[in-house]
Design a binder for these strands. Structure first.
Length: 936
RNA sequence: GCCUCGGUGGCGGAAUUGGUAGACGCGCUGGAUUCAAAAUCCAGUUCUGGCAACAGAGUGUGGGUUCGAUUCCCACCCGAGGUACCA
């Protein structure tokens, strides 16, 4: 063998690791544990592109590094294998989603294996595997059987709640429950029918059925969560989305809002990501104020963060959907109000958003009574007040709120100025430091002092109280889809009943057609989808008799169900009697390092925290947060290429000349463009039939393409396949290059230009061990200089790994190889620790060299080398001599010199004296070990 | 609008608590090797002036603190992400 034969080395060691199960983790060990987790992928049909493995490579380096450091490392991988694309493909082709999913997983696995990850594949999980979703369903049922007790601040069994209802009704219960929960006594509870009781219980359950306004996507035939809707269209496919009321399964995540918010302070996540979650939870502290309707015994609450501005309230506004609107509207105004309500209902969210500038609204004819002054205040309706936030009604203070100000101006409603020295002719004053006036007992106070005083006054009068509001909404937990976890519920006389836990998993039935039918979800097509209560089994729909056999829920769970707890399953993936054993969870505890994209900030990363807290409440997991350290990897973007077609022709004009014509940019496959942006015209012509006769206007005899950075995607023809890079340069080059590209957290375009540099490094590294292609490592004693290089590299690389600064770690390796290359070092005492150091980054090459050095064990568990401080300290130090902060000169001095000696030595220097001849010296600043600054 | 993060050569990107700005790689220039090319090796490469020594400028813009600022403070400009009539 004459050269660094990366293809042979890659195959050899990948096979070796698989056959020897090198990376299998045990659930007990004398070593300390470390859990490195990646966000598992959805296996799409397109396969992996170079962007996907970025995070996997980084986490793999860290996992391997921790193994060298003597940890028992858990580094698993699996698949989030339920999802929409497989189902849509099934609708088009009739191919069962399980089949395509299996194929895609196979391809993903092949691609991942080629990169040489140290995953423990014996722990692989798939969310679509019945053995896995058995426990997703189980958790669903635990949530269904629980309610949230605000007094103990945790989830508790619903059976206990029922006992309380039977004894004393619900007046003493402090629960996180639905807003429309009625009050009842024990007697009233006992008198209720099973259906009535069921309805009440759903207002307390943590998964519950409710009539809710949802995002309905007609094109997809399903509801979508808020975070699956982007700019009014569906995230997948970009179809229009409308608001619709439907009876839905919901998750009471709002019960955990406060804990989800507070515990952000306990976890080491990127600040931007925490900020996104804080905003999403959207806590606002304020007050609830009760207004009576004049001439009626009705009243309603408003939520405000500025209770201090109550004296400035000159009108009230309700959302058009507010339940009291019809009741309070006077006969004279009824027609106008009805028309406005109808108009508002027709408007889409998007239209509402675009009409922000002009406030619209209608007077109801009714008046509210000011709780302090007793004044009559007109009640209006307007769509700038949202039904879904707060109480759906506000007190409008035009002098203190810009939106109220605009509304008042629009409809000529009086404005009372309540701030000292304030000009209300132009806009409202939203400054919290403004001092109140015209506000009775609050005059002379700023908001900070006035708010608590006002709340105290309202409480005294029974007209209000302090209140905390959250923007966070309960999550819709049902999709009208086939390819998802079945909801383990059947309906007995209209009451939702859990399928007994011992029967789980409730397996997804076969259907002939994956499309919704007659307004029913796809599971409505299943022939065997009824629950036989007596025999405790699923039977044919034909047997439904409403006495012992009942219909099963047709909705399936949303995509985020399985991913909300999968990280715990890896700890004990084959357990058939519980989701994971207490032994396993007590050993692994939680994820030590989690790597994934920030796009999941308001989805997976919030829901999974919620489920973890619930599992913590029911004593299933020992930690309220499952991942204390999280790193976001940035996306690798595509570097799209464009050719410019002259409008209406089949002629393409080169980039530099395109402005002389009217052109349309056309995406060109990046694989037809070289590193200098020149297009391979022959390949381009052969690309598609319609291009075979294309003409070209060239510059300098070549066709130059335009470039733009975009998301990597098939449709933009900018996808780079990792397999191709591996084929050409080897897995280790791909791994190191992806790390070298830049910090892992930031988004960066893929650019093959730098690949060569990394590849050269690996070849040079290989060359240190070989002479004319023959292995040649000497046992000679290393020199001081060689030891210096080694120990400096150990120190820097180790620090870089600990800081997840993998790009600079790669640089350190390059420096070391250049320096050692110049010295022609081939000494074992230097190279041996260096190979271990490199092993996390380039494991294939490291294993090969390790074996060549005569070891018969894998390098993966070799103790990580330690640096010795004595080789790092320099005996002399080059001091930069600054004059007024600017570098002018350098002087070599012994490293351990004290301040006075340094000053003396510097001032004695000839060059320094020549600099100082024309300027008088004012002051000398000496920082030992660093710098000398002369002030003149 | 609000919140968060960022802005450094031709490019990707380095710079402990304020202390030699531009590490490392790409690209480019010159040289060695070669019949030639590829590959490899060596040297140079922030900008301006100069053969050079060297001098001046320089981390988005403008100020400030400091002996000294990419780093700290203030104001502004630009970009990315999040969010939006949230009371």
């Amino acid at each position: 063998m004459k050269t660094y034969d990366f293809n042979r080395i890659d195959h050899k060691w990948q096979k070796h690791w698989a056959e020897n199960q090198t990376f299998k983790a045990e659930n007990n060990s004398d070593k300390p544990k470390y859990y490195v987790l990646d966000m598992f992928p959805y296996p799409s049909g397109a396969g992996l592109h170079v962007g996907h493995p970025l995070g996997y490579i980084a986490s793999d380096i860290y996992a391997r590094y921790k193994r060298h450091q003597g940890y028992n490392v858990l580094h698993p991988m699996g698949y989030d294998s339920f999802g929409l694309p497989a189902e849509q493909y099934a609708i088009l082709t009739g191919q069962h989603p399980a089949v395509t999913t299996e194929q895609n997983i196979k391809r993903y696995r092949e691609q991942m294996d080629k990169i040489g990850f140290s995953f423990d594949w014996s722990r692989e999980v798939r969310t679509s595997d019945p053995k896995f979703y058995k426990w997703t369903q189980w958790i669903f049922l635990q949530l269904f059987k629980s309610w949230y007790n605000k007094d103990t601040d945790k989830a508790e069994p619903i059976a206990e709640l029922i006992k309380i209802f039977e004894k004393e009704g619900n007046s003493n219960i402090n629960a996180a429950c639905s807003a429309d929960t009625p009050n009842f006594t024990a007697a009233e509870w006992q008198a209720m029918t099973p259906q009535q009781k069921d309805t009440i219980l759903h207002k307390y359950r943590l998964t519950y059925l409710a009539e809710a306004e949802v995002n309905w996507c007609p094109a997809l035939g399903t509801v979508l969560a808020n975070d699956e809707v982007v700019n009014g269209v569906s995230e997948r496919g970009g179809h229009p989305v409308e608001r619709k009321k439907m009876r839905q399964w919901m998750m009471r995540i709002t019960a955990y809002a406060e804990r989800l918010l507070n515990d952000l302070d306990t976890i080491d996540w990127p600040s931007s990501l925490k900020e996104i979650q804080r905003n999403w939870i959207g806590k606002s502290v304020g007050a609830l104020i009760n207004f009576k309707v004049a001439g009626s015994d009705q009243s309603f609450d408003v939520f405000t963060t500025r209770a201090d501005t109550l004296y400035g309230a000159t009108f009230m506004v309700m959302a058009p959907e507010h339940e009291l609107v019809d009741e309070i509207t006077t006969n004279e105004q009824r027609e106008k109000v009805q028309a406005y309500k109808a108009q508002a209902a027709r408007k889409t969210e998007r239209e509402r958003m675009t009409e922000v500038k002009n406030k619209t609204g209608v007077f109801t004819g009714a008046y509210a009574v000011h709780p302090l002054t007793g004044d009559k205040i007109p009640i209006w309706i307007s769509d700038y007040v949202l039904a879904g936030y707060g109480t759906g009604a506000i007190m409008a203070v035009p002098s203190g709120d810009q939106r109220d100000y605009e509304f008042a101006r629009q409809f000529d409603i009086p404005i009372i100025n309540i701030f000292e020295g304030n000009d209300i002719s132009e806009k409202a004053n939203e400054d919290k430091n403004a001092v109140l006036t015209n506000s009775g007992f609050l005059n002379g106070l700023p908001a900070k002092k006035a708010i608590p005083k006002m709340i105290a006054e309202l409480e005294k009068r029974g007209a209000g109280k302090a209140e905390v509001n959250y923007r966070l909404r309960d999550a819709v937990f049902a999709r009208q889809r086939y390819w998802g976890e079945p909801v383990p519920i059947y309906y007995k006389e209209g009451v939702a009943m859990p399928i007994p836990e011992k029967y789980l998993p409730l397996e997804l039935p076969e259907v002939e057609n994956y499309l919704p039918k007659d307004g029913k979800p796809p599971l409505g097509n299943a022939k065997n989808w009824a629950w036989d209560e007596q025999n405790e089994t699923v039977v044919s729909n034909d047997l439904i008799d409403q006495k012992t056999v009942f219909p099963i829920e047709l909705n399936t769970m949303p995509g985020w169900a399985g991913s909300s707890w999968y990280f715990n399953r890896y700890m004990d993936p084959h357990n058939d009697t519980e989701p994971f054993s207490q032994d396993a969870i007590n050993y692994w505890q939680k994820v030590d390092l989690y790597l994934g994209g920030s796009e999941h900030a308001t989805g997976h990363l919030l829901y999974s925290r919620f489920w973890q807290k619930f599992l913590y409440d029911i004593n299933k997991v020992p930690e309220p947060e499952y991942s204390v350290k999280l790193i976001n990897q940035g996306m690798i973007l595509g570097y799209s290429a464009f050719a410019y077609r002259i409008k209406g022709t089949n002629t393409f004009v080169s980039l530099g000349l395109k402005d002389q014509y009217e052109t349309v940019p056309v995406h060109v496959d990046v694989n037809m463009v070289d590193d200098y942006d020149y297009l391979d015209i022959e390949k381009f012509k052969a690309w598609r039939p319609d291009l075979a006769n294309a003409e070209f206007i060239l510059e300098d005899g070549k066709y130059k393409v335009g470039r733009e950075v975009e998301k990597m995607s098939k449709s933009k023809f900018n996808v780079v396949n990792p397999d191709d890079i591996i084929e050409q340069y080897g897995a280790d080059t791909l791994r190191m290059y992806e790390m070298f590209l830049g910090p892992i957290e930031i988004a960066k375009p893929w650019n093959t230009a730098g690949l060569k540099g990394v590849h050269n490094f690996l070849r040079k590294f290989w060359s240190l061990f070989h002479n004319n292609g023959v292995f040649d490592v000497s046992l000679e004693q290393p020199t001081e200089q060689e030891l210096r290089i080694l120990h400096k590299t150990i120190k820097k690389v180790t620090e870089d790994i600990e800081n997840f600064s993998f790009n600079t770690a790669v640089s350190q390796f390059m420096i070391a190889v250049n320096e050692l290359g110049k010295l022609k070092t081939n000494k074992q005492q230097i190279l041996s620790p260096l190979v271990i150091l490199l092993a996390p980054f380039a494991p294939h090459l490291a294993e090969e060299l390790w074996e060549e050095m005569g070891h018969d064990q894998s390098i993966a568990f070799e103790p990580y080398p330690k640096y010795e401080a004595r080789y790092i300290k320099e005996s002399t130090k080059t001091y930069p001599i600054m004059v007024n902060g600017k570098m002018r000169h350098k002087i070599d001095l012994p490293a351990n010199m004290d301040k006075e000696s340094i000053e003396k030595a510097v001032l004695a220097d000839e060059k320094v004296q020549s600099i100082l001849t024309d300027k008088p010296l004012k002051k000398v600043i000496v920082v030992p070990g660093k710098i000398v600054n002369l002030v003149v």
